Deep mutational scan, measured.
Amino acid sequence: MATKAVCVLKGDGPVQGIINFEQKESNGPVKVWGSIKGLTEGLHGFHVHEFGDNTAGCTSAGPHFNPLSRKHGGPKDEERHVGDLGNVTADKDGVADVSIEDSVISLSGDHCIIGRTLVVHEKADDLGKGGNEESTKTGNAGSRLACGVIGIAQ
C-alpha cells in the first residue's frame, strides 16, 4: 500500500500549488496538507474528481469521485461524495494553506484517490446545502481553477 501521495495543481491562470497526502494505516485517516497560491481571497471548493484525465484541462477530470452514488455534502457529513473535501481558505495575498484530515478518502482500496484528479474551484462549496439540484452534485463551487493528478510519492 502506498502511504504517501502528492498532487501538483496547475491551471490556465495564476492558480498553482502542491498538496501532499499521507496515510499511516490502511483504514486510518489521510492527512492532506500543502499550499495553493494565486486564488482570490475567501473560500474555494476542494474536491477529488473521478478521473485522472487532464487532456482537456480540468474539465476532463469528470464529476466528483463518488463510488457510493451519494449526494454532495461537506467533509463531516454522512451523506457526501468520497471526493468531497470541503473548502480551502485563501488569505488576502491569495494563498491557501491547506491542513485537512479526512477519514473517507484513502490511498488504497475502494476509496483510493491515487490516479484521480484534485481540483480547486472558483467559488465556495455550499456543502450540499444550497437548496438546488446543482448543490447536491457540485456544491455550486463554480469553474475549475486548477487541477492535477494525484500520484504515489516516496
Rank of each mutant, 00 (worst) to 15 (best):
K137W: 10
E41K: 15
T55W: 02
T136P: 07
D126P: 01
I36Y: 04
S106F: 07
A90H: 04
I105M: 07
A124C: 12
E133L: 12
G28R: 08
K137H: 06
P67A: 07
G28H: 13
V32C: 12
G11N: 08
V6S: 06
E79Q: 15
L127V: 13
V6I: 05
V98K: 03
H81L: 00
R116Y: 02
G142V: 01
L127N: 07
D97C: 10
N66P: 03
S26T: 14
L39R: 00
G128S: 07
V88M: 06
S106G: 09
I150E: 00
S106N: 10
G42L: 09
I36K: 00
A141D: 02
V98E: 06
L85F: 13
L145R: 07
N54K: 08
L43A: 07
T117F: 01
V120A: 08
K123I: 07
V8Q: 13
S35E: 11
V32I: 08
D12T: 12
E133N: 12
T117H: 02
L85E: 02
D77H: 11
S35R: 12
A141K: 01
K92T: 08
D91M: 11
E50F: 14
D126T: 03
L43E: 06
K123D: 14
V15A: 08
V120C: 13
P75T: 10
S143C: 04
Q23K: 15
A56Y: 08
P75L: 08
I114M: 10
N140Y: 08
A124L: 08
S143N: 11
S108P: 04
H121G: 00
S103T: 06
S69T: 07
G13D: 08
H81F: 01
L145Y: 12
G83E: 03
S26P: 04
I150R: 02
T117P: 01
E133I: 10
I19M: 15
T89N: 09
G139T: 01
F46Q: 15
V82W: 11
G11I: 09
F65Q: 06
V149L: 09
G109R: 09
G62R: 02
R80H: 12
G86W: 01
G73R: 06
K123V: 09
G128W: 01
H47S: 01
V104P: 06
R80G: 00
G11A: 09
H111Y: 14
G62M: 02
L118M: 15
V30R: 04
D110S: 11
V30N: 02
R80D: 02
V98W: 09
V32R: 02
N54M: 15
L127W: 06
K129H: 07
V15F: 11
K37W: 07
S35G: 11
S135R: 00
D53A: 03
C147T: 01
K37Q: 10
E101D: 12
F46G: 04
S135T: 07
A146C: 10
V82M: 12
A124F: 10
F46T: 12
L39C: 07
R70Y: 14
T138V: 05
K4M: 05
G86V: 00
L107C: 04
E122Q: 11
E50M: 11
H72W: 00
H72Q: 02
G115T: 00
S143E: 03
G45S: 03
V149H: 03
G11Y: 13
D93K: 14
G73I: 01
I114N: 09
W33K: 15
K137S: 11
V82G: 09
E134D: 08
G109M: 07
I105K: 03
L85P: 00
G115I: 02
N66Y: 04
N66R: 06
I19D: 02
E79K: 11
G17Y: 14
L43Q: 11
V120N: 02
V119F: 00
S26E: 15
L145N: 11
K92N: 14
E122K: 09
D77Y: 08
K10E: 15
K92Y: 12
G94D: 12
I19N: 03
A61M: 01
D110R: 10
S103R: 13
S69C: 15
E78K: 06
G17L: 02
S135A: 08
R70V: 04
V88Y: 06
K71V: 05
K76F: 15
H44R: 04
V119D: 00
V8G: 04
S69F: 15
E134G: 08
K71E: 14
F65D: 01
G17A: 09
D53S: 03
V8N: 11
A90T: 08
H44P: 00
G38Q: 10
G38H: 06
K31D: 15
N132R: 10
G139A: 01
S143Y: 14
C112K: 14
T117S: 12
K31Y: 09
S60K: 02
L127K: 07
A90K: 07
G38K: 05
G131S: 14
I100Y: 13
S35C: 11
I36T: 10
R80E: 00
K37V: 11
L127D: 07
V8W: 08
G45I: 02
G42R: 08
S35M: 10
E134C: 03
F51M: 03
E41H: 15
T89M: 15
A2N: 13
Q16R: 14
V6C: 13
T138F: 05
V88E: 05
T89Q: 04
I36D: 01
V15L: 12
G74S: 09
V48I: 15
H47R: 02
K129D: 10
G94Y: 06
G86P: 06
C58I: 01
D125R: 02
I36L: 14
D126L: 01
D102G: 11
C147V: 00
P29Q: 09
L39G: 06
V98M: 04
T3P: 05
R144I: 01
A141M: 03
T59E: 03
A141H: 02
S60E: 00
H121Q: 01
G151A: 04
G45E: 01
I113Y: 01
C112A: 15
V6A: 11
R80L: 00
D12I: 11
E133R: 09
A61T: 04
L68W: 15
L85R: 01
D93G: 15
A56E: 09
K4G: 09
P67Q: 06
G34S: 04
F65T: 01
T40S: 11
L68P: 09
K71G: 12
I105G: 03
I18H: 13
L68E: 13
L9C: 13
K123H: 10
G109Y: 12
I18C: 07
A146P: 00
E25S: 12
N66G: 09
E134F: 04
I100V: 14
K10N: 13
E22N: 12
G94P: 09
H44Q: 05
V82P: 11
I152F: 04
D102K: 04
N66Q: 12
K24P: 08
